[in-house]
Deep mutational scan, measured.
Amino acid sequence: MTEYKLVVVGAGGVGKSALTIQLIQNHFVDEYDPTIEDSYRKQVVIDGETCLLDILDTAGQEEYSAMRDQYMRTGEGFLCVFAINNTKSFEDIHHYREQIKRVKDSEDVPMVLVGNKCDLPSRTVDTKQAQDLARSYGIPFIETSAKTRQGVDDAFYTLVREIRKHKEKMSKDGKKKKKKSKTKCVIM
């Protein structure tokens, strides 16, 4: 069974824990209790493949930012979460993405942009803004509501699919490099 290491990042209060708990335990946590770091595991079937999701729910508070490099190193894919009623959390996505790329030393890291709290009427981040940002990053965008469960499975499952595509691409690139290195030079 394939294991996928997913990391949920975003500013404090955007609903990272609520999304994760909704996926794992099928219930909505409405009281806000700032996370330092929590880890969850769940076995699911995605596109006919049974897999184990190892999900790291991270601290959004700035005082825990020193811990970010460590979990970013171990993560295979990242859910970059903002709240649709919090423009600052949307603007912060850029910083999370840049930090992930720096730590992973790669421009090509599996990510999904997630606009959470889409059940709320007080939207300050337009869907088109988020779609445009995701398009500019070359990553999928999904709106979710941890409260109603809308888009929750889709967000995590899409990230797994992005990781699969990335692994497939990397193995193809690896095979191309191996083929090239088999060419021999004969000096007579």
Rank of each mutant, 00 (worst) to 15 (best):
63 E>S: 05
63 E>V: 05
63 E>G: 05
63 E>I: 04
63 E>Q: 04
63 E>P: 06
64 Y>W: 14
64 Y>L: 15
64 Y>A: 15
64 Y>G: 14
65 S>T: 09
65 S>P: 14
65 S>K: 03
65 S>L: 07
65 S>F: 04
66 A>P: 09
66 A>G: 09
66 A>Y: 05
66 A>M: 06
66 A>V: 15
66 A>H: 07
67 M>E: 02
67 M>F: 03
67 M>H: 01
67 M>V: 06
67 M>D: 02
67 M>S: 04
68 R>G: 15
68 R>L: 12
68 R>T: 15
68 R>H: 15
68 R>P: 07
68 R>V: 13
69 D>P: 03
69 D>H: 07
69 D>A: 05
69 D>I: 01
69 D>G: 03
69 D>S: 05
69 D>M: 03
70 Q>T: 01
70 Q>M: 02
70 Q>R: 01
70 Q>H: 05
70 Q>V: 01
70 Q>C: 02
70 Q>N: 02
70 Q>K: 05
70 Q>S: 03
71 Y>C: 15
71 Y>T: 14
71 Y>A: 15
71 Y>V: 15
71 Y>F: 10
71 Y>Q: 15
71 Y>M: 15
71 Y>K: 00
71 Y>D: 15
72 M>L: 14
72 M>S: 13
72 M>H: 10
72 M>C: 13
73 R>S: 09
73 R>D: 08
73 R>Y: 07
73 R>V: 08
73 R>E: 09
73 R>A: 11
73 R>T: 09
74 T>M: 14
74 T>F: 15
74 T>L: 14
74 T>A: 14
74 T>Y: 15
74 T>W: 15
75 G>C: 13
75 G>T: 06
75 G>P: 10
75 G>V: 13
75 G>A: 13
76 E>G: 03
76 E>F: 08
76 E>Y: 13
76 E>C: 13
76 E>H: 07
77 G>W: 02
77 G>A: 13
77 G>V: 12
77 G>C: 12
77 G>S: 03
77 G>F: 13
78 F>G: 00
78 F>S: 01
78 F>H: 04
78 F>P: 00
78 F>A: 01
79 L>N: 00
79 L>D: 00
79 L>I: 10
79 L>S: 00
80 C>I: 14
80 C>S: 03
80 C>N: 02
80 C>D: 02
80 C>R: 01
81 V>I: 11
81 V>L: 11
81 V>N: 05
81 V>M: 11
81 V>H: 05
81 V>S: 05
81 V>F: 14
81 V>T: 08
82 F>N: 03
82 F>W: 09
82 F>C: 12
82 F>Q: 02
82 F>V: 05
82 F>P: 01
83 A>Y: 01
83 A>H: 06
83 A>R: 04
83 A>V: 03
83 A>D: 15
83 A>W: 02
83 A>M: 04
83 A>L: 01
84 I>G: 15
84 I>L: 13
84 I>C: 13
84 I>R: 10
86 N>T: 03
86 N>G: 11
86 N>R: 04
86 N>L: 02
88 K>V: 07
88 K>A: 07
88 K>S: 06
88 K>L: 09
90 F>N: 04
90 F>V: 08
90 F>W: 13
93 I>G: 02
95 H>L: 05
95 H>G: 07
96 Y>P: 00
98 E>H: 04
98 E>G: 03
98 E>C: 04
99 Q>R: 05
99 Q>V: 06
100 I>W: 05
100 I>T: 03
100 I>G: 00
101 K>Y: 04
101 K>W: 04
101 K>R: 11
102 R>F: 05
102 R>H: 07
102 R>G: 05
102 R>Y: 04
102 R>L: 06
102 R>C: 06
103 V>S: 05
103 V>F: 05
103 V>D: 06
103 V>P: 01
104 K>E: 05
104 K>G: 06
104 K>C: 14
104 K>Y: 12
104 K>V: 11
104 K>Q: 13
104 K>S: 13
104 K>R: 14
105 D>K: 07
105 D>S: 07
105 D>V: 05
106 S>L: 12
106 S>K: 10
106 S>T: 10
106 S>I: 09
106 S>G: 12
107 E>G: 10
107 E>D: 12
107 E>I: 13
107 E>L: 09
107 E>Q: 11
108 D>N: 09
108 D>Q: 06
108 D>M: 07
108 D>W: 04
108 D>G: 07
109 V>A: 06
109 V>F: 12
110 P>V: 03
110 P>Y: 01
110 P>W: 00
110 P>M: 03
110 P>G: 02
110 P>N: 04
111 M>C: 06
111 M>Y: 02
111 M>G: 00
111 M>P: 00
111 M>S: 01
112 V>P: 00
112 V>I: 10
112 V>N: 00
112 V>R: 00
112 V>Q: 00
112 V>M: 05
112 V>G: 00
112 V>Y: 03
113 L>H: 02
113 L>V: 11
113 L>K: 00
113 L>P: 01
114 V>L: 10
114 V>Y: 00
114 V>Q: 01
114 V>N: 00
114 V>S: 01
115 G>Q: 05
115 G>N: 04
115 G>F: 10
115 G>S: 06
115 G>T: 05
115 G>R: 03
115 G>D: 03
116 N>H: 14
116 N>Y: 02
116 N>E: 07
116 N>D: 08
116 N>W: 01
116 N>V: 15
116 N>A: 15
117 K>H: 14
117 K>E: 10
117 K>N: 14
117 K>M: 15
117 K>C: 14
117 K>L: 15
117 K>R: 12
117 K>P: 01
117 K>F: 15
118 C>S: 10
118 C>R: 06
118 C>H: 08
118 C>K: 06
118 C>E: 11
118 C>D: 09
118 C>F: 08
118 C>I: 11
118 C>V: 10
119 D>S: 05
119 D>R: 02
119 D>T: 04
119 D>N: 06
119 D>V: 02
119 D>H: 05
119 D>A: 03
119 D>K: 02
119 D>W: 02
119 D>Y: 04
120 L>S: 12
120 L>C: 12
121 P>V: 10
121 P>M: 13
121 P>A: 12
121 P>E: 13
121 P>Y: 09
121 P>S: 13
122 S>M: 11
122 S>Q: 08
122 S>R: 07
122 S>L: 08
122 S>I: 08
122 S>C: 11
122 S>T: 12
122 S>Y: 08
123 R>E: 13
123 R>Q: 13
123 R>N: 12
123 R>K: 11
123 R>T: 12
123 R>M: 12
124 T>A: 12
124 T>R: 09
124 T>I: 08
124 T>K: 11
124 T>W: 09
124 T>M: 09
124 T>C: 12
124 T>H: 11
125 V>L: 10
125 V>I: 10
125 V>R: 09
125 V>H: 08
125 V>N: 10
125 V>C: 11
125 V>T: 11
126 D>L: 07
126 D>V: 08
126 D>P: 06
